[in-house]
Design a binder for these strands. Structure first.
Length: 422
RNA sequence: GUGGGUGUAGCUCAGUUGGUUAGAGCGCCAGGUUGUGGCCUUGGAGGUCGCGGGUUCAAAUCUCGUCACUCACCCCA
């Protein structure tokens, strides 16, 4: 690209959506809307720009370095939202005394994060957010996951395609205490466990040692990762704890929802964000080639942390980038083409009025009509109609105007039918 | 932030030891066919070979720098 030439590519990490890209995006949004609606979630939305102050207070430390921030003309420090939860918490806190709980809210929003790009990760994406606020029952966790799996199912993705890995930070806390690891070491331990699977076991133990754990404790922490089931966890604990019983309830509910084949206990799920306190989960494709499809968990201190009255909840975030890759890998062709049903063309200026009035009357019948803007040769018109994806095409010449009828051509079958000119 | 890879037409890519006017397929436009698309056929438009310096009689080709894109790691939604 010459220095004088304008680059035509979108800024790094940003996406353009050409007409041929919209059917997939619209299908994904439609699946999200429908699944959320079926589960009784109400849609909300918020402004894209937030104050930097709110985001710093609420987001995790790593995220802060990735915020797209700027100063406006009045020196206000603002930012494009990197995630939806701070905005949601702000909106709920603003009306906390007027709202009836539990809230079940959802949104489909664009979020921005300045970070290095890799497969499945852009600097901008759309995500479905499902939140239930002010409800302690584990059924809240079940409902958000049920809604997300329903959306995947309506896009043709079932138990063979993905699995939701579930654990609990509360359970992990119980286990760490059982191993005599003091509570002030837990955050660092969570962080190290979250990294495992991404970095080597040696690097993880190194991380734990530098966080201040002694060598024997490091060994026992790593041994936790051998836990393959809730029963094994209970054996180590000696007796079920509230956290393990809660997980047990969760899996029973999932079974009664008919979703047992889509969930699995996985002690290694921790999640990076600091605000989760209970059950946490991430959905992966079965081959585990891609990043998490969706993820979330219970956050019981969210509103209190930003200065509202304490109220717990469950949140789930579900991005469109990994989902699109999954659908592409599966070669699924979803979405309806965003083109007109019927093309109307004409041979010369003399037939233009007839073409206009025909188009208007077809549109009255709610038919999507693409009216040619200038005369064309028949060959050009039909070729264009075909490539545009129209279902049918009507070409008006002098004879048609004289006879008062036109031929409607079905472009799939090639058949033509007579129709009166309105 | 670390380490690879790649930059030639709108797209996917050829381009020989450096050597005439830089090619193909697809796509686009038009003609063959002035009342009917897909097939066929003919033609056309479209490139300062990412950018800048160097070596050379001669650079898409060699060299140095730079920028961009991309993948893996790191990190994370």
């Amino acid at each position: 690209m010459g220095t004088n030439k304008q680059s035509f590519s979108a800024p790094r990490g940003m996406r353009d959506f050409y007409p041929e890209d919209m059917p997939l995006r619209n299908a994904v949004f439609a699946a999200w809307h429908t699944a959320a609606g079926q589960h009784g979630f109400q849609q909300y939305d918020a402004c894209v720009v937030e104050t930097l102050d709110l985001l710093k207070k609420k987001s995790g430390d790593e995220i802060i370095g990735q915020i797209y921030d700027f100063t406006d003309k009045s020196d206000r420090e603002l930012a494009l939202r990197p995630e939806m939860t701070p905005s949601l918490a702000r909106m709920v806190a603003a009306r906390q005394n007027a709202l009836r709980f539990p809230l079940k809210w959802y949104s489909i929003v664009q979020c921005f994060r300045y970070e290095r790009m890799s497969k499945g990760r852009k600097r901008e994406h759309f995500q479905l957010n499902l939140d239930i606020i002010g409800e302690n029952s584990v059924l809240a966790e079940v409902e958000v996951i049920s809604a997300a799996t329903r959306a995947l199912e309506s896009l043709g993705l079932g138990p063979d395609d993905f699995c939701v890995h579930v654990s609990s930070r509360a359970l992990l806390t119980d286990l760490l205490l059982k191993l005599d690891i003091p509570a002030d070491h837990h955050p660092a331990t969570f962080l190290a466990l979250d990294k495992l699977g991404k970095i080597s076991k040696e690097a993880t133990s190194e991380l734990l040692l530098t966080s201040g754990l002694d060598r024997s404790h490091v060994e026992s922490v790593l041994s936790l990762l051998a836990i393959k089931s809730l029963d094994e966890a209970n054996n180590i604990l000696g007796a079920p704890t509230p956290a393990s019983m809660r997980l047990s309830d969760f899996f029973q509910f999932m079974e009664s929802y008919g979703l047992s084949d889509r969930v699995a206990f996985d002690i290694s799920i921790v999640r990076g964000l600091a605000y989760y306190t209970g059950i946490v989960f991430e959905a992966f494709d079965r081959s585990k080639e891609l990043r998490a499809i969706f993820g979330g968990g219970r956050y019981d201190n969210l509103l209190g942390d930003i200065g509202g009255n304490p109220a717990g909840g469950v949140g789930l975030g579900f991005g469109d980038v990994v989902l699109a890759e999954l659908l592409t890998n599966k070669n699924s062709s979803i979405g309806v083409p965003n083109t007109a049903d019927t093309g109307v063309g004409y041979m010369s200026e003399e037939q233009k009025p007839a073409a206009i009035s025909l188009s208007l009357s077809l549109r009255q019948e709610n038919i999507l009509v693409d009216l040619a803007l200038h005369p064309e040769k028949a060959k050009t018109f039909f070729s264009r109609a075909d490539r545009s994806g129209f279902q049918q095409a009507i070409f008006i010449g002098p004879d048609d105007v004289a006879s008062g009828t036109v031929r409607v051509k079905n472009l799939k079958t090639g058949e033509q039918q007579q129709m009166d000119l309105a």
